[in-house]
Design a protein around this nucleic acid. Structure first.
Lengths: 107, 107
DNA sequence: GATGAGTACTATACATTGTATAGTACTGTG
DNA sequence: CACAGTACTATACAATGTATAGTACTCATC
């Protein structure tokens, strides 16, 4: 899996998953890993950064399955940022796919 | 336009356009710029890198419109690499789009 | 001839964000 | 106690865009 493709996308993935419900870090890693090979080590700094930037708030919650979990919750600002990113992603991938069509089509 | 999304994609775009026909650097910049905002300054180092890596060969050709042009031509190795990248791009974007679906769908 | 615009390419410092790796801490089980 | 699974923290490094600055050529205009 091309590392460079992934840049910038990880935060989109995290924001999208949190749009649906609050989640803890490890769960986010697992959910994303179902679709894209990622390193655990990159998610936590990202979560910290996005929290610092005001897109999430966090709270601790006891777990019956292991240590307590740090949950992340999307803020309104986070939700707005997500909408932006979703649009950018769509515009961007459409642009790339159009280039691929142009390049691949042989007249 | 999110800079990080673009990482790794520029080389895919260049390879795809050269799959169709030989092109010179400036033309590649223009064609890609039609779809994605990119900086000219990033394309030339990329072209040099991919040439050094064996994916292109180059030749000079006189132009009637300005200075002579340095054309880039895809090698067989380049074509193979392109196929790889195309598959990776598809796998990757499908994975991201699936995550977006999951995250966005509210039950 | 000088100048400017457009064509065409080169070079470099820097910012950003993944990976890889190493580690910590908690809980339950054997 | 040791180990596995759960859950999180920290850091060095690689890679590749951007921004910026520049070079050189050709043609048109003054």
């Amino acid at each position: 899996m091309n590392v460079q493709f992934k840049k910038g996308v990880l935060e989109l993935c995290v924001l999208v998953l949190l749009d649906k419900q609050d989640r803890y870090g490890y769960e986010l890693v697992q959910r994303i890993s179902d679709r894209i090979a990622i390193s655990e080590g990159s998610v936590y700094p990202l979560l910290r950064r996005l929290t610092k930037d005001g897109y999430f708030t966090t709270y601790l919650k006891e777990s019956t399955e292991g240590p307590s979990r740090k949950y992340y919750k999307l803020t309104d600002e986070g939700r707005r940022y997500l909408d932006e990113l979703l649009q950018e992603w769509e515009t961007f991938t459409n642009g790339v796919n159009q280039l691929i069509e142009e390049g691949v089509n042989r007249e």
